[in-house]
Amino acid sequence: MTARALRRRRYLLDNERFLAPIMMAPAVLYIIALVGFPFVLAILLSLSDATVGNPEFDFVGFDTFSRILDDPVFRRSLRNTFWFAIISNLLVVIFATILAKILVADFRGKWFVRFLVLLPWTTPVSLAAITWLWTLDSIFSPIDWILRNLGLISDNMYWLGRPGLAMSSVIAVHTWRIVPLAAVIVMAGLTAIPNEIKDAADVDGARFWRKMFAIEIPLLAPIIAVAVLFGFILTVTDISVVFVLTRGGPTHATQVLATWAFFKGIEGGALSQGAAIALFLFPVLVAVTAVILRLARRREVL
């Protein structure tokens, strides 16, 4: 390379208008190729009648959508997804705030407690679900054993075998899994509250509950909103908890959109229907995100 070319190259690399797009391009192109393109493909698939056996795109318009909307299992999955998300995230907010308060307190053995508390979140979800599958076993569940010995039940509970209980179990496992993540996020918010505010509250003689409801919760609102947003996306899009615990059963009582899309599209081979079912998640995600971000922005204090 001649000295002039070298200088020219160096000049180009120092030029921000030129450098910025170059540095961004690989990441952006990667995402466009492997998120943007498949997303378009998902929409095209949902408007076709493609199957695994015959993956040709034959345009059928909204036929696939009207077919899945007529399916009672689909309507049940939609309802279940909705309730799963709402109930588990309400529980997440309550427990995560409590857990965050515990984790910022000073006590001996904190490191070990933190390790145990993080386990549900750091363990791969499918493996965490395996431990629950055994904990909720129809015959050997240790929870049943405790309840039996306390004389509260005489027969087993069959946690995953009865529709209502199975639904509650799946909600509980989702909550259990997301609380640590949400608590970590809320903790970040708690430590970011300026010391002057805390000191001022102490000087004014504010006690625990007063401090919590008058200072911490209002100040934390935006960051709790962020935690809920993460929790919401994680619960609505998760397939492994239901897949491992109940496979959607008993009789589709715990079926959600994500698992139904998998059973229809991959195991059943109906690609177009699977794609259409999964696409139903998109407007839900967009709407919820818009609402939460707006709430968070309006109360921007941190």
Partner: peptide
């Protein structure tokens, strides 16, 4: 991009 998670994309 998080609003287009794997659950939406695994079939295509």
């Amino acid at each position: 991009v998080y609003l287009i998670p794997p659950t939406l994309l695994f079939i295509p």
